[in-house]
Design a protein around this nucleic acid. Structure first.
Length: 888
DNA sequence: TGTCTCACG
DNA sequence: ACGTACGTGAGACAA
């Protein structure tokens, strides 16, 4: 007989393993000493431990799919067709997963012709009939159809430390449907991943609406005659068969012919010896440590960290003499830390936690001393954000030692989250909620009013920073990336913070003036276009524009997109001359882009207080090591076309008698390539300061003197040079310069003959990526390339091109970062007033007082030239003027 | 929210 | 026979 509290836990093994695999797919080194991938086993265990702890089940079963063919594929041969084959990196983990379950004392089961779902469906009904509380764990929402009063379906979440529990009430709340109507919904809407179609043009939303009215698929067809005429009705009638079939496919069996009994699912004793040897085989060091007995109170202590709430009156509780590093976390409500409201802060000093909502306390002793004392090491998450935030309070943070965000970006820039909880769990510490989980998102986002709640979250973040410091620092050392962190990224964060705080002044009057000019021109163009089209339509809508051009005006279709006709510039260029409307559309596009993105967009983000824009550089986002810029993006201000370039007239110095000064690296990526590839011919060209594109032209066209290089030949050679840097393909090159693929191939072959060092580099770097799983820059910045062994040609080729390009683009990014740090240092040493304002990948923008101009130019050239010692010289070109426009 | 288009290096 | 240049951010549209 079952007791009241007996719980039967049913786990969808395949689904959870898949989720587990993809949750940590891109983490570089998740293999054991034999090269076996272990990420899915690792995450599966984490999930399993969480749910075992949460539900304390007496009975557990993990169900697996038996094979590709099931009774469903017999009914519908395309069922799950087209689904990508399980990656080898995952399938090799299943035997070990099963070994681990056995050691846990947990039964696994599969049944020929049936899916794991059906096993779970059947056992859940048997279980609830015998009085068990049933919990189903899966990553697949389809299973919520099994939900009843006695059966809860727990769906794993992205962060995998949490599950979303579906009870009948929750299903109703989420979908507005009864659990068993989920089947009807699937029947109508179909399922992409299982590859059955449902009714044409009916998605989840429409399905739900229909089911609310008619209850079931059958119900809809009983009342189909009452529905008023519509496209949807036609589709419903046409696809009736399909709808019924899909419903059948979506229905999970509750009467599969199982050869297993409930009693077999009773959970057995854990076999620690087996687990121990398994973990050793898999190199699961932290799990081994858990096995050998860590302090069981640790978890409890974490759940409820005691935080001393600080006020004006008890600041003396904070110790004055501090030896160990201090962990500090400053929370703000919103992404833009230049003006986001403060939420609160937490310190961890020795083993004590101190916190408050009132950030004004930070200005007082002893807190301010802790943050500004150069002798006290600080550990934080995102030091740039923290630095700017504290600067708003008049506090200059010094001496950051560990920045969890920066370090984890250097260790792995594939998973480029900026959420502390998410990153911590990537590094095996999965106890901290993500901000989205804790605060909610969108309209539901809310800062808890209860101190207990808020400071639990903040202190958990602080705890994670403290916990991860040593292991992550060790990993950095093992990767030889300690220098990259200490000498480059960490100091750079502070330099960037200063640039962001400085901001750049905007002449809003100039922008307003351009705005009204553009407005005028746009309305004229619009009229012309409407006249030529013979009707009014939305020119900004690719769909409506496509209709006018290709249907009404019957212009030839050059290219299609997923959703219809392409109307991109490359297409319109080809249609030029066929109709006067095309030129007008091109001009309209150009002006309206300038108007909305640059004029209006920029005006929206100018700070009223100082008439400046304060961008934020994302230091931990790109896969190559470049920065990016947001709010506004100041790295893509127009320059190529005169019309757009004028936007730059609105970027001005912040003081009279100053100038905007720009300094950019000439051909830095090709110089980097010449250096790392060690190609003599290319190095020679740079050493002699030749025109590099003309030089390439002479080589590939077999010319004897630079005089023979026509502008057109040079243009083609330039494209070849770019192609080389990007990881060339004949097709890509042919598209770019409008030649045949055969000609493009000829160019590339000749190029590689003339520059054998480059060819050798390309081959070797791809080989390196295959062997090691990553490529790196001259400063040891890594990029992992798991796709380099992918069986899909396209995916693999992409990874190969990335392998060729990343060390080049990344090393160039490293070099300018070094230059920025050195420049910042020199300006301070020389007590110059000039300020660094912007970075645009290979270019630095400053504002400089007139009287410093001469000295400054000499300084910036020497600093940028000498940022790194390559086998070829670096070249810097400078310009200055009254606005960014004239600094050219 | 995803797609398309287009601005930059 | 595949179907592609590398790296970004933002606005508008259409669900």
């Amino acid at each position: 007989m079952t007791k009241q509290e007996d719980t039967l836990l049913l786990v969808d093994g395949n689904s959870v393993a898949f989720r587990a695999f993809f949750a940590l797919q891109n983490v570089g080194s998740f293999t054991n000493h034999d090269g076996l991938h272990t990420n899915a086993i690792y995450v599966f265990k984490k999930i399993l431990d969480n749910i075992l702890k949460k539900y304390s089940p007496t009975n557990v079963l993990v169900a697996f799919d038996a094979g590709k063919t099931t009774f469903r594929t017999k009914k519908y041969s395309d069922y799950k067709a087209g689904r990508a084959k399980t990656p080898g990196e995952l399938s090799e983990q299943f035997p070990y997963l099963k070994k681990m379950l056995a050691a846990y004392g947990i039964k696994d089961y599969e049944l020929a012709d049936y899916e794991a779902d059906d096993i779970i469906g059947t056992l859940s009904r048997q279980g609830q009939a015998e009085g068990y509380r049933v919990v189903v764990v899966t990553g697949d929402r389809d299973l919520t159809q099994l939900t009843t009063d006695k059966t809860t379906v727990a769906v794993t979440q992205k962060g995998f430390s949490e599950v979303e529990e579906y009870t009948p009430d929750h299903v109703k709340e989420k979908y507005g449907l009864e659990p068993k109507q989920i089947i009807d919904m699937k029947g109508l809407a179909g399922d992409n991943s299982d590859n059955y179609p449902g009714v044409t043009k009916v998605g989840e939303k429409t399905a739900i609406k229909l089911l609310k009215q008619y209850t079931s698929v059958e119900g809809i067809y009983e009342h189909i005659d009452e529905m008023k005429q519509s496209k949807m009705k036609e589709h419903l009638i046409e696809d009736k068969e399909t709808a019924l079939l899909c419903k059948d496919l979506a229905t999970i069996k509750t009467d599969a012919p199982l050869t297993i009994k409930l009693i077999d699912t009773k959970r057995q004793e854990m076999n620690e010896t087996d687990l121990h040897s398994l973990y050793e085989e898999l190199d699961f060091k932290s799990f081994l440590k858990d096995l050998t007995g860590e302090d069981p109170d640790e978890q409890k202590a974490f759940d409820k960290l005691a935080v001393t709430m600080l006020t004006q009156k008890n600041l003396d509780k904070v110790p004055a003499k501090i030896k160990e590093p201090v962990v500090f976390y400053l929370e703000m409500d919103g992404k833009n830390y230049h003006n986001a409201p403060f939420v609160g802060f937490v310190f961890k000093i020795a083993d004590q936690y101190y916190g408050a909502r009132d950030v004004e306390l930070l200005k007082q002793a002893p807190l301010k001393q802790i943050l500004t004392d150069p002798a006290i090491k600080l550990d934080v998450f995102d030091c740039k954000r923290t630095f700017v935030g504290l600067n708003r309070l008049g506090i200059t943070m010094t001496n950051v030692d560990f920045d969890l965000l920066l370090v984890s970006y250097l260790l792995n820039n594939t998973e480029n989250s900026d959420d502390l909880g998410e990153l911590a769990s990537l590094h095996g510490f999965d106890q901290v909620k993500t901000d989205e989980q804790f605060y909610g998102k969108g309209a539901k986002r809310e800062i808890p009013a209860e101190d207990d709640q808020l400071f639990a979250h903040l202190s958990h973040k602080v705890f994670a920073i403290a916990t991860l410091k040593e292991p992550l620092f060790t990993e950095l050392k093992n990767n030889q990336q300690q220098n990259l962190y200490d000498e480059m990224e960490l100091p750079l964060a502070q330099v960037l913070a200063k640039m962001e705080i400085a901001g750049i002044s905007v002449d809003t009057e100039r922008l307003e003036q351009m705005k009204s000019e553009f407005k005028e021109r746009l309305s004229e163009l619009k009229q012309d276009i409407y006249n030529e089209a013979g009707e009014e339509f939305n020119i900004n809508s690719p769909k409506q524009l496509g209709h006018i051009l290709f249907e009404k005006l019957e212009l030839p279709v050059i290219k299609k997109t997923k959703t219809g006709y392409s109307t991109a510039v490359s297409v319109l260029e080809k249609l030029r001359g066929m109709s006067p409307i095309v030129d007008n559309i091109l001009t309209y596009r150009q002006i309206s882009k300038l108007q909305s993105t640059y004029i209006e967009g920029l005006l929206k983000v100018v700070f009223k207080e100082d008439q400046k824009v304060h961008t934020r550089y994302t230091q931990t986002l790109t896969a190559t090591g470049r920065l990016s810029s947001v709010d506004p993006n100041l790295q893509n201000i127009p320059v190529r076309l005169e019309e757009g370039r004028k936007i730059r007239q609105a970027f001005v110095p912040s003081r009279a008698g100053w100038q905007i000064f720009s300094a950019d690296y000439s051909q830095i990526e090709l110089r980097v390539l010449a250096h790392i590839a060690g190609d003599e011919h290319m190095q020679e060209a740079f050493k002699e300061d030749r025109d590099i594109h003309a030089n390439t032209a002479m080589q590939i066209f077999g010319l004897d003197s630079e005089d023979e290089v026509t502008p057109n030949i040079r243009r083609q050679a330039k494209a070849v040079n770019f192609g080389i840097v990007y990881g060339i393909s004949d097709y890509g090159l042919s598209q770019n310069i409008g030649i045949t693929r055969k000609q493009a191939k000829q160019f590339i072959d000749t190029y590689f003959e003339k520059f054998p060092g480059v060819k050798k580099y390309m081959d070797e770097i791809v080989e390196h990526a295959r062997e090691e799983g990553y490529v790196e820059t001259i400063f040891h910045r890594r990029r992992y390339l798991p796709d380099i062994k992918n069986k899909n040609y396209n995916i693999r080729s992409f990874a190969e091109r990335t392998a060729m390009n990343s060390p080049i683009q990344g090393s160039a990014a490293d070099i300018i970062k070094v230059a920025m740090i050195n420049m910042d240092k020199k300006l301070a040493e020389k007590k110059m007033q000039a300020k660094m304002l912007l970075q645009v990948h290979d270019e630095l923008i400053f504002e400089v007082p007139d009287e410093e101009l001469t000295d400054f130019e000499e300084l910036v050239k020497s600093v940028m030239d000498s940022a790194v010692d390559l086998n070829v010289p670096l070249k810097v070109e400078c310009a200055h003027g009254k606005t960014w426009f004239s600094a050219k």
